[in-house]
Amino acid sequence: MKDWRYWLAEQRGTLLALGIFVAMFAIYSANHPAGFTANVVQTAANKGVLLAFVAMAQTLVVITAGIDLSVGMIFTLTNCLASWLVIGTGLETAFGVVAVLGTGLVCGAINGAIVIYGRLQPIVATIATGAVYFGLALLLRPFPGGSVNEDLADALTGRLFGVVPASLVALVVVVAIVWVPFSRSVLGRAAYAAGSSETAAYMSGVPIRRGKFVAYALAGLLAAIGGLFLTFFTYTGDAAYASGNAYTLFSIAAVVLGGVSLFGGKGSALGAIFGALAFRTIGDLLFVFDLDPLWQPLFQGVILLIAVSLGAFALFRVRNRLEWFL
């Protein structure tokens, strides 16, 4: 096979997600009353970027064959924290941003430590830590409120040169400084290897524990970046249980749409980002077609159900029935 065919096979999930997103966004903007304008793109980008950050966070953990059900709660917690800290003079704001991101990193590291060194199942461990993070969020913001440095918020949610949404630029920057170095590092390879076959990776002397730990910790960091952006968009902190849970759920949907294998070892954060943008656009299609917003949760649920069922097509390739049982 030629090089480009290898590349194509590897990126198939990502390209498929990109295709779905482009198609959906074309339908969306074609039917939007305002059409394809900078304003429409900016609003869509701002909504999509939030989920994209959380989906990236989920990707890192899913690659290691784990799952992080606390990702939405870290998102909520950092949102509440940012509504206290990211305010005041430039120096205070900078300190606040660092503190918020550090908190996310610590939350992710705690998850990682419990799962890897405590040897608990990721699913139970992260549901439990999610409860703790939500409790902390509630402690910080019993009622919605707070404020944020509005200059910074407006700069990061507005448009660059009047056209490009600044949030998209921020997303690209985060991909460049978090995802790209990680996925090309030894630890990133270790995370993939651990997800692909932990036994084989262990036997080959790959640092799987460190790789997985860094993946969990960075997932916390990315969720915190999402929480920070939520604060920039809403100017408030809000410890909403339903919203945190919804982000966890949507992040899994985005990951699946983005071609990341839930069995680990396959996929990329770029795919998850396109998955997230596509999922958001599909959810918003209801609005441009003037349907009752009451139907939105059902619509999103059905999309999620269809997206996860698509994985079942792999069954047709199974030659031996024993391969059903992993």
């Binding site: 040897r119 461990a125 830590t129 409790g135 262990y202």
Partner: peptide, 28 residues
């Protein structure tokens, strides 16, 4: 309050699981 309940609750569950719910260490 609800916040404290959630925190204690999650912590107790993680702590008790760490006491006796751990997966075996053997691998490879």
């Amino acid at each position: 309050p609800e916040a404290g309940r959630q925190i204690i609750y999650g912590t107790v569950i993680v702590a008790m699981l760490l006491l006796y719910g751990r997966a075996p260490a053997s691998r490879g």
